[in-house]
Design a binder for these strands. Structure first.
Lengths: 234, 234
DNA sequence: CCGGGGCGTCAAGGGTCCGTCAGGGACCGG
DNA sequence: CCGGTCCCTGACGGACCCTTGACGCCCCGG
């Protein structure tokens, strides 16, 4: 599938205070079937992001004022919309700063339009399975997990979980189908300051597998992503 | 009683002292046909909740002052309106505190707007049957509990309960099937300021089990959730 | 072939939480 | 004044849970 533009879900917000570059980007993107909105200030960018619900945001960091990262932080305060950052600087520091602040991808100027288009498509595609369950009851094989009642059953029999076990399982189930990074798991379950205690994860995933999995040695629900994190699969 | 004008189940109160985030939320929610009211202080939140009787409340906990939990307690003092909590990722403890205090669900920032919308719909949907289930008589095994007449029978014979015992049982039965956090129990039965007196819970759950359970050592109705709360099971 | 990193497993310690019991004090009715 | 009921409080034993360290395995790269 080498189509240059839009599958459904192709609304992009371009944030750039250089009106000329913004117009050039808009023309190119529209030519590839993107529905483009342009914002030339940080405040307008935040309003547009809230109002128009873009599928992806292109954010130019190469601005005279360094408000680009602030705009990114303002969006990341509540939204998970993918953000692709543009920067003229070839220094690696800006790149890591942007990625640290929550950017999803990074393109350095000058860039080929094909590359930007490819990265936009990739960013949207990655964000697609972001649907998170709100159904309080999740069934996975012989397991039945009730997030509201705080009860997990296996073949109808209630399984007793300790508070920490439940907390870990809850985070994984809420993001079922998607990998959850080790850092996020540690922060959500144990709180900040435990980023590096990966031992905890090994211990408690093992305990959960012993209580929940049919064959703890060959888990089918609590999947390990080596070097990255864990995933709960239905 | 409030008038029943408009479609039911779409009035939401947003409580957030960050005006920018509150505005972004309001824009998004209104775009999805919610009737939005915004409160930026705890006092205003309580006033609005009492005056406008929203169908669901979005409460941001990530505030400089920690009054978020107080707002939740104030609401829970008289209302059962579902509350969805917004929490910063790095504050895992606040999350469990909120659920303990009676929050119905939570969303960690950053979040996808779709996720928040889904959770709001789910919270409203869950709260609907609770109101319809105004049947004041609950039967659980050999127990028969009449919430309206304040009478509990076991095999047809009336069981005498002290006022405190009844008050505790009533809270648990009204939330039957769901775990009730320790904090919420203490606040509902003994009032605010008794958040930490978990001894009371141990003493009175033991007394209730002695009067109600078939085998107090192996309870089948008054279930303990270690480190979290208690649950009444039918 | 060898070394290292990441993962799963296990066991033991110290600490926390729960269930239990008994006693003192407050309140009420006789 | 007195007896009863109820609530609060503290203490204690035991079970449970969290943490921590050590060990073996596998995979991968040198």
């Amino acid at each position: 599938m080498t189509a240059t533009g839009g599958s459904p879900g192709n609304r992009v917000l371009v944030v750039d205070d250089d009106a000329g570059l913004a117009r050039a980007l808009a023309i190119n993107l529209r030519a590839h079937h993107w529905d483009v909105t342009v914002a030339t200030t940080g405040a307008a960018a935040l309003d547009e992001a809230a109002a128009s619900h873009p599928d992806v945001i292109v954010l130019d960091l190469g601005l005279p004022d360094v408000s680009g990262l602030d705009v990114l932080a303002g969006i990341r305060g509540w939204s998970t919309v993918p953000v692709v950052v543009l920067s003229a600087r070839q220094l690696g520091e800006d790149k890591v700063d942007a990625l640290d602040a929550g950017a999803d991808d990074y393109v350095t100027k000058p860039f080929a339009m094909n590359e930007l288009l490819a990265r936009l498509r990739a960013a949207v595609r990655r964000s697609q399975p972001a649907e998170v369950t709100s159904d309080p009851v999740v069934t996975a094989g012989r397991l039945r997990i009730d997030l509201a009642r705080r009860v997990v059953e296996r073949d109808g029999a209630e399984v007793r979980l300790t508070p920490t076990e439940w907390s870990l399982l809850e985070v994984l189930v809420r993001h079922r189908g998607r990998m959850v990074g080790r850092k996020q798991l540690l922060q959500d379950v144990w709180g900040p300051g435990y980023d590096t205690e990966t031992n905890y994860l090994r211990v408690y995933t093992a305990q959960l597998r012993r209580k929940l999995e049919d064959d703890p040695g060959d888990p089918r629900h609590l999947i390990t992503h080596p070097g990255a994190g864990y995933r709960f699969e239905v």
